[in-house]
Structures are given as structure tokens and as C-alpha cells.
């Protein structure tokens, strides 16, 4: 989400609870947040506000699902995890437990993945306690020449958002 943009962020959910004092809004039940084409679906989303606006968003779901449309030079991003948190301070989105990000045919899977959209850097770690995710980070990276030589290639079937068969 881009806080500076003037596009409104719409949220709809089964129920919502606002706590103005601490600036926390909690939406539960089939929550969907959209800003332009970017949207986030989850079972529960908690928004934290401070004086300069929304400072933190926490979404949890089975899994929570975040989609960002393609921009110039960068394909559409499709990411899922049990909990997705966005913090304004670090301008970074963190996906925890069963985190999977797909972009431009590249695929990342791991227990904890941080995605800094400004720097366009993804860092990922396997969980030390090696839960069921085998404690490893896995990724599939398409050969560079394929993506660069045909950026507008319509039939790039690997980013049609086909869901991951787990």
C-alpha cells in the first residue's frame, strides 16, 4: 500500500471494531482491503494509526493473500502467508509462516520473508525451530534473458496468478 497516494483505501469485512483512543481498527471475517488494484484478503486485519496516519497493518488468515499489480519494470506480485504485517517506519512488508511470494515467474517460499518494495529487496529466513516448513528458504528464479527480452509477453503463463498447488 502506498500511504502517500491519494487513492482511498477501502476495507470491507463482516465486522469491524474501532478504538479511537489508541487508534486501532480491527476488522474480522472475510476482510478485503483494496487500494486501486492492490488488494489484501485475510480473516482478520488490525490497523494502527498514529499522528501521521496508518503506521502498521497486521493481517492474519488461512492464508492472508496480498496482490500488487504489475508496474513498469516489475511484474505483478502475488504473496500469501499466515500473517502479513506492513510497517510504515521500516516501509517493509513481512510475511510469516508458510510465506510464498510469486513475481515475474520467480517464486520464494520460506518461514519469514521481508519485502522492501522501495529497495526491491527480498530477504528470507528459515525458522530456526524448523517447524513443518523444513526450516529452509526455497526459490525458483527464471533465467534473466527470458523475462527481459519479452516484458510484455502476453502468454507468460507463469505469472497468470495460477494459485500454488500446495
Amino acid at each position: 500500500f502506498d500511504m502517500e497516494s491519494d487513492q482511498p483505501i477501502r476495507v470491507n469485512a463482516d465486522s469491524a471494531r474501532l478504538d479511537d483512543g489508541q487508534g486501532i481498527a480491527t476488522y474480522t471475517g472475510d476482510v478485503e482491503m483494496t487500494q486501486g488494484q492492490t488488494n489484501l484478503t485475510a480473516d482478520k486485519v488490525v490497523l494502527y494509526r498514529d499522528e501521521s496516519g496508518v503506521s502498521r497493518i497486521e493481517a492474519t488468515g488461512q492464508p492472508a493473500h496480498y496482490r500488487q499489480p504489475a508496474t513498469e519494470g516489475q511484474g505483478e506480485t502475488d504473496a500469501r502467508a499466515l500473517t502479513i504485517t506492513w510497517s510504515a517506519a521500516e516501509n517493509r512488508v513481512t510475511f510469516e509462516r508458510e510465506a510464498v511470494i510469486e513475481q515475474d515467474g520467480n517464486l520464494f517460499r520460506g518461514d519469514v520473508i521481508h519485502y522492501d518494495s522501495a529497495e526491491r529487496v527480498v530477504t528470507a529466513e528459515g525458522a530456526a525451530d524448523a517447524g513443518e516448513g523444513s526450516g529452509r528458504v526455497e526459490m525458483v528464479i527464471q533465467p534473466r534473458n527470458r523475462t527481459s527480452n519479452s516484458p510484455s509477453n502476453p502468454d507468460r503463463q507463469d505469472t497468470d496468478g495460477s494459485s500454488q498447488s500446495q
Binding site: Q74, Q103, D104, G105, N106, F108, G110, E119, R120, V121, V122, T123, A124, E125, G126, G135, R136, V137, E138, M139, V140, I141, Q142, P143, R144, T147, S148
Partner: peptide, 15 residues
Amino acid sequence: APLRASGLNARYEID
């Protein structure tokens, strides 16, 4: 062919 990689932790500057 795509390059499949895995490890304990990773850092990827996209492209």
C-alpha cells in the same frame, strides 16, 4: 531452465 535454489536464509535484490 529456471534455477531452483534453497538455503537457510536468503537475500534477493530482484533482477
